[in-house]
Design a protein around this nucleic acid. Structure first.
Lengths: 334, 334
DNA sequence: TTGTAGGCGTTATCAG
DNA sequence: CTGATAACGCCTACAA
């Protein structure tokens, strides 16, 4: 147990006045005389007084803290996102409690419990890739802790979510490929159970249609997003009788593995095979042979919007209808 | 203000027993009868009772929260570090409050203040590149909030610090260069005021000496670590009458810019010019032409050690002597 | 084995 | 303008 710092009572004792007066003086309450206020502030200064926030949190039933749960900060997408969240939180005088799920649903739940214990005023969350059980949403509802999902959001209705519409970027990607003559465009997709994968799949199909290209289901491969999975995926595509000449992949990490493998196989990028993926990570600008393009998903805009929605809810205690905000994704050519 | 969840009092009322009994029952106090305990727990369950941590924090003068301040999560070094910190914190049932300084001393201070307000039990910190004023250390001391620095640590004595000895890696780098015949080895260093730069400079000099190579001060260039600064630095080296054939640079980010520039100039890496830098970021494995090597600084080990020291201090209230732990850095060839 | 009372630091209400 | 009192939820010595 720690030594106790100066309190309002202590100041009151020294000045031989009541704690309530001190409290009011410190808060510049209009009804307190100027002299008293000054004297109080002077002593407070001397004693290095600092209000005990834990007491205030306790009394006010508010912690001025939000919790942020995301899969992994090693993904540039999320480190951008959290920077923006921190910024918005700061603007509202809030602090950020952080937790990485590493795509582990159990960890996710544990972090949520901890946040709840710590009585955070709200939660921002991007789901892990394996999260199936969404019952925690109800639990948070019961506890009246608002939550806003972003990027990787649940399929269910009735929750706040902010995400990017993967279809716009996909359409642009396929257009870009088609416009330079590609007919055989493949998709290396993520795990089939992911909403993000399903959306990519649908958008891919639509994209081909609008370009009047045939959909060939052998051109859609799934990877579990591990390096090995990625390599197996590209290998499958390369060994098809009719090899695709252009490939959209789940994200830039996949493309990194894939490009490396293709290079090892002696194929030349942007000649033998063309790539576009999601995420638009900054590292491409350093690569000697970057992919043809990458689809920007605007992590900071998503994060900011999500945070703003959250603070909106924290501010107004009456139930507001859940919000859904969708950003367009956008192809960026390299 | 929020609706109040179930409290101990509420349970007591329902059971017509006293709150203290409920409290004890919930904490498995031995003096409470088994039946009572069960009945209490049952009702607690029904009411979805959850202890109000803010009350407990308040009473115990402990928040089970540590604050972590680091320059930027977009650097892989720090995102590794924070993952490890989170892990250690979890092992101690602690939660992590997060703040990025973005190398801005004012922001750093503001985050520190916030952490202090929130009454964190301890702080882990890696200094920003421009932090000169270290008076906050004393302030934290007065507030009895232990702090452990890691990676970018202050030069002063009497604080806990964990960092990596840059000299070992530098020696290996210069040896590696010398062993394949390089005589003209340059250093692209960071800002001169940085401890990290000074150490690199000293180690560079020593390294040359042990290899009996001459030290040429024109081979030491400083960059402010912006892209432009990095490009200017390499340009200066390339336009020297006697161009260096090998270059150690401040970190991998610098090397990325530099390699790109060199490539634009038509020079070939690992032929016209060889590179080694600090950090050993994972991205090299994807590059077509990675640098010759990178010096690993073990962010996770540093972070873990720092966190362990911190929790040690948090555990024991008596003053322990400040600790300093140094890890060796190590060259990893690509 | 259980209950009572007091306190952690702050603030809001009511009374002077 | 200022003071006394109670209350936030929990814990714990002390009393019964």
């Amino acid at each position: 147990m720690k030594k106790k710092p100066a309190t309002i009572k202590e100041i009151a004792r020294r000045l031989k006045i009541s704690p309530s007066t001190v409290s009011r003086a410190l808060n510049d309450h209009p009804s307190i005389g100027l002299v008293t206020t000054m004297r109080v502030k002077k002593v407070a200064e001397e004693l290095n007084y600092e209000p005990n926030q834990t007491a205030i949190f306790f009394k006010q039933r508010r912690t001025f803290t939000i919790g942020v749960i995301l899969p992994s900060l090693s993904e540039p997408f999320f480190s951008s996102a959290i920077s923006e969240i921190e910024k918005v939180a700061g603007e509202h005088d809030y602090t950020v409690l952080m937790g990485q799920s590493h795509d582990d649903a159990a960890r996710e739940l544990k972090i949520l419990q901890t946040f709840k214990k710590h009585r955070v005023d709200g939660i921002l969350m991007s789901l892990g890739k394996n999260t199936e059980d969404l019952s925690f949403v109800e639990m948070l509802n019961d506890a009246e802790i608002p939550i806003v999902f972003f990027d990787c959001v649940p399929k269910i209705e009735g929750v706040n979510k902010v995400y990017s519409d993967l279809a716009t970027g996909m359409r642009e990607a396929i257009q870009a490929f088609a416009s330079i003559g590609h007919q055989n465009i493949a998709l290396i997709n993520g795990p089939a159970n992911l909403l993000a994968s399903q959306e990519r799949a649908a958008a891919y199909k639509n994209g081909l249609e609008s370009e009047r290209l045939v959909y060939n289901e052998r051109y859609v491969i799934h990877t579990d997003l591990t390096e090995q999975g990625n390599v197996e995926a590209i290998d499958k595509l390369l060994t098809l009788p009719q090899r695709p000449s252009a490939i959209v992949s789940f994200n830039d990490f996949v493309t990194l593995d894939v490009i490396k493998y293709v290079r090892q196989k002696g194929l030349v990028q942007k000649k033998d095979v063309f790539f576009i993926s999601y995420a638009n990570y900054p590292l491409w600008k350093y690569m000697e042979n970057p992919p043809m393009g990458s689809i920007e998903q605007y992590p900071d805009q998503q994060a900011r919007k999500a945070a703003e929605i959250l603070f909106n809810r924290i501010g107004s205690d009456d139930q507001v209808e859940p919000e859904t905000v969708v950003f367009e994704s956008k192809l960026v050519l390299k």
